[in-house]
Amino acid sequence: MIKKIDQTVIRGLDPTLGYAYSHEDDLPLLENEKYENGLIYIGNKETAKVKIGILGGSTSDISLSGSWLRPMYKLLNDENICIISGAMSGYSTSQELLKLIRDIIPSKPDIVLSLNGINDMNFTQCASPKHPLIHSYQVKLGNFLVKKYGTNSNTSHFFNKYSSKTTKPMGMNSNMDIGNLILGFENSIESFESWYRNIKMAKALCKEFDIKYLSFLQPTFGVGKYEFNKKEETIYKEYLKEINPLYDKSLHKFYKNARLIVKMNSDFMIDLVDIFQDYSEFYYDIRHPNKKGNEILAREITKIIKEKKYI
C-alpha cells in the first residue's frame, strides 16, 4: 500500500550534491521499495540476481507517477532484479557523476542506466558554467559560512566553535577564520560538451569496476518528431512567453549537438528523443512524460538492455 504522499519532499542537505532525499517518510514508497543511505531500492537487494543502478533527474525520480522505474521493474520481474536508484529531481550529469562515485558504485550494481539531457541544457543546475560540478545550493551554503564565520564577520571562529582541541582540521587550527570560497578550475566549455564529458567519465568508471553502462538521451517537449496537440502547443507557447523566452533556442542548440554526439557513440549512448513520435498526449508538462509516456520509456529501455544481453 502506497504511503499518503503524492511526490518526493526534497529537504535533505547533501554537501556533495547540494540536496537529496532526507528520510523514507518523504518518499512515496511501495511495499517492495526501501530507502537507505541516499538510495532507493526496488526489489530485494539481498536475493536479486541482477542489480541495476539508475542515474538521472526528475524523469527517473519515482515521485513523478512512479517514473519509468516501476514499470521496468514489472517487465523484468521474472529476471529477479533489484533496481538501485540514485535519480533525483533536478540532478544533471554533473551530480550523476558524483552520485555514481559516492553511492552507486559502492552498492555494486551489474548495470548502470542513465536517462539524461534536459537538466544539463545551458548549465541550469550548476552555480556557474565555469563550475559545472558544483550545484548552486552548495555555493549558497558556502557563501553563508564565509560571510558568517569569515575574517570580516566579527564572529567567533567557526572551527574553534565546532572542533575539539584534539581533532583540528588538517591545515587549519582553531585560531583561523574561514577564508574564501574555492570552487576550483574554471571551465570554458559548452553545456553539451560538459554533458558528454560527464558521461564519458561515468562510462570509464563503470568499465573499471566491471559494470555495464548505458546513457539514454531523454525525450522532452519541443524537440524531435513528437507532434503537439493544441493544448500542449498552448502550454509550450505560454512557457516561452511568461517564463523563459530563450528556452526554445537553448533547447534546440543543446539537443542538436547532443544527438550528433550520441550518433557517434552508439555503443554506449542511445537516442530516445523520438520515442513518442507515433503517440499523442504523452506529456503532462513541458519536460516530463505522463504515466503512459513512462510505460513507453520502460518498454523501450527494457528492450534495449535485453537486446544487448545485459540481462
Rank of each mutant, 00 (worst) to 15 (best):
M1Q: 14
I2M: 14
D6V: 09
V9A: 05
A20P: 02
H23N: 13
E31F: 11
N44A: 09
A48E: 07
K49V: 06
K49D: 10
G53T: 08
G56Y: 02
G56E: 08
S58W: 09
S63V: 05
W68T: 07
W68R: 06
P71Y: 07
K74R: 12
I83E: 05
I84N: 05
G90A: 04
S92K: 04
S92T: 01
Q95T: 04
L98M: 05
I101F: 06
R102W: 01
P106L: 07
I118E: 00
N119W: 12
Q125E: 11
S128I: 02
K130L: 00
P132Q: 04
S136C: 01
Y137W: 15
N143V: 08
N143D: 12
K148N: 10
T151E: 13
S163E: 05
K165L: 12
T166W: 14
K168R: 14
K168M: 12
P169A: 08
M170F: 12
M176C: 15
L181T: 08
G184A: 06
I189Y: 07
F192E: 08
A202I: 10
A204V: 02
C206Y: 03
C206E: 06
Y213Q: 09
S215T: 09
Q218G: 10
F221T: 04
F221E: 00
G222Q: 05
V223S: 06
Y226F: 12
Y236C: 00
Y236L: 04
K237N: 10
K237T: 07
Y239W: 15
P245D: 11
Y247G: 01
D248L: 02
D248W: 02
S250K: 11
L251D: 00
H252L: 08
K253D: 14
K253A: 05
K253G: 14
K256S: 15
I261M: 08
V262L: 03
M264N: 13
L272I: 07
F276S: 01
F282A: 03
F282N: 05
Y283S: 04
Y283P: 00
D285F: 04
I286H: 03
P289V: 00
N290A: 12
E295R: 07
E300S: 10
I304H: 04
I305V: 07
K309H: 13
I311K: 06
